[in-house]
């Protein structure tokens, strides 16, 4: 346990010190939530703007941390030989991944709490909170995005991975109904949104925060499918160093 605890603490330390990652994981979600709830420029459907925005921003925050932040950091660690070096210690690769996951979960919990508090200050009520939907979105959303992030980080070189993670982030942000109501998008895009992990997560989060009463079975299945696919792909293709033969 000591090596795992030490590595988890080190991961959190580095994250807190890394300004770009903090901006991505905390700054952007908070800014989106506050800005679009105050400035009414988005098609948010009927009802209070904050009720529409909060689930989407929670989904964005989760995607930022589990995919982009983890993926970019892991990609650069791979380029710098950090993963290779740690692979020669008793930490071992399973515990290294467990430490990274623990760091992701801690950051996501903090994100959710901060965003919920800000949303409450902006008029959101927690009375309709659906804990099962929240846990389902949290667990399977995290698994899906961690899988995608590690797949890209473990196969692409540092800078290409950086571009790919950010590009995918932007694409999912715009196409999945996270901050733009999917019903206001063309029908083709609407269907695409429901099949994307970001769209499925946003749907689950709407139920979780009480904005919607629709069932979560279908989007949960979408997330489970993405989780399985991405994690298996990451496991099969991940190389720990750009010059490594797979061990």
């Amino acid at each position: 346990m000591k090596p795992w605890r030490a590595q988890t603490a080190a991961e959190l330390h580095l994250l807190v010190r890394n300004g770009e990652q903090l901006l991505l994981t905390m700054g952007i979600p908070v800014l989106l939530l506050v800005f679009f709830s105050v400035v009414d420029v988005l098609p948010t459907g009927e009802g209070d703007t904050i009720d529409f925005l909060l689930p989407g921003v929670l989904a964005i925050a989760l995607m930022s941390t589990a995919m982009v932040s983890l993926g970019i950091a892991t990609g650069f660690e791979r380029s710098y030989g950090v993963l290779k070096r740690l692979g020669a210690t008793p930490l071992g690769r399973p515990r290294l991944i467990a430490a990274k996951l623990a760091c992701v979960v801690v950051v996501q919990v903090v994100q959710f709490v901060v965003l919920a508090v800000i949303a409450a200050l902006l008029g959101w009520s927690a009375s309709g909170l659906n804990v099962i939907a929240l846990l389902s979105g949290f667990i399977f959303g995290t698994a899906s995005f961690v899988g995608i992030g590690l797949f890209l980080a473990g196969t692409l070189r540092g800078e290409i991975n950086l571009a790919a993670q950010n590009g995918l982030y932007l694409l999912m942000l715009l196409l999945s109904g996270m901050i733009i109501d999917a019903d206001s998008m063309p029908s083709g895009l609407n269907s695409l949104a429901t099949a994307l992990p970001s769209g499925a997560l946003a749907t689950i989060m709407r139920t979780a925060t009480g904005h919607s009463t629709s069932g979560i079975a279908a989007p949960t299945m979408v997330l489970i499918a993405w989780s399985a696919m991405a994690l298996v792909l990451a496991g099969r293709t991940f190389s720990w160093s750009p010059s490594d033969s797979k061990r």
Binding site: L14, R17, N18, F76, Y80, G81, V82, R85
Partner: peptide, 9 residues
């Protein structure tokens, strides 16, 4: 390692 293997920050 030849390349160090330490995160720059």
């Amino acid at each position: 390692l030849q390349g160090g293997g330490v995160y720059p920050s």
